[in-house]
């Protein structure tokens, strides 16, 4: 492992906290892999060696787990993971065309990273926001109801070094590494940030209110 002393010390401290959440050490492996991504921006050979040591597995066993899951990256990821949903519903509602235009603007295809290391583009599978189709995710924040224009605007802002704001979620999109740290189970104090609740989420509630319907027995 080539981590410097300070990095290794931090990683070791965080790893102990993660392992402490589970009755059995090995359960910590998925969050630990998110943790090493928060340092290296991907699951590096160093990261694999570190995880293996922490949960007492071989590096082959850790690699076998890491390569199973799409969120663990085998090459350095861009600062922004941009994903356009091209599963059936989003694709048909316009996701295919959004992906095509975003890919053209970035000059990269699926699972490729721009030369400046800013953006890694992905064709995403369903991200559980079908009522907001077509959907784009950036570092796992929601960009709902996209059009090619709205998506390209966000992409241009990223390329220009500006912070970007999801349609639901935090006040700004955190970097890939910062997001990975949250996914390792470390709070970043942003849970109360809010871009408002979207219309589809409240659609049924609104109809019920307009009609004066109450749940049974109320």
């Amino acid at each position: 492992m080539s981590y410097d002393e300070q990095t290794l010390e931090g990683l070791t401290k965080d790893a102990a906290e993660i392992i402490g959440r589970y009755p059995v050490k090995r359960s910590a492996l998925l969050p630990l892999l998110h943790l090493v991504q928060s340092i290296d921006g991907y699951v590096s050979p160093d990261g694999i060696a570190f995880c293996a040591e922490q949960v007492e597995l071989t590096s082959a066993e850790v690699s076998a787990v890491a390569t199973f899951y799409t969120q663990y990256k085998r090459r350095p990821n861009g600062e922004y993971a941009v994903g356009v949903c091209t599963n059936t519903l989003c694709a048909i509602m316009g996701g295919d065309e959004i992906y095509r235009q975003v890919s053209e603007r970035l000059g990269v295809g699926h699972d490729e990273t721009t030369a400046d290391g800013k953006v890694t583009l992905e064709r995403l599978e369903c991200n559980a926001a079908c009522d907001y189709a077509p959907v784009m995710m950036i570092n796992w924040e929601f960009f709902d109801d996209q059009t090619p224009e709205s998506a390209l605007k966000v992409i241009d802002d990223i390329l220009a070094g500006k912070a970007v704001v999801p349609t639901r979620g935090a006040n700004t999109v955190a970097s890939f590494k910062e997001t990975s740290r949250v996914l390792a189970g470390f709070q970043d104090g942003r849970a109360d940030e809010d871009q408002g609740i979207g219309e589809p989420t409240l659609a049924g509630l609104k109809v019920a209110k307009d009609q004066g319907w109450k749940e049974a027995g109320k």
Binding site: Q71, M137, W140, F142, R168, A170, L183
Partner: peptide, 12 residues
């Protein structure tokens, strides 16, 4: 893992 704000809200 693909919904970071949901994870934040749950942890909080």
């Amino acid at each position: 893992g693909e919904v970071v704000h949901v994870y934040r809200r749950l942890m909080k």
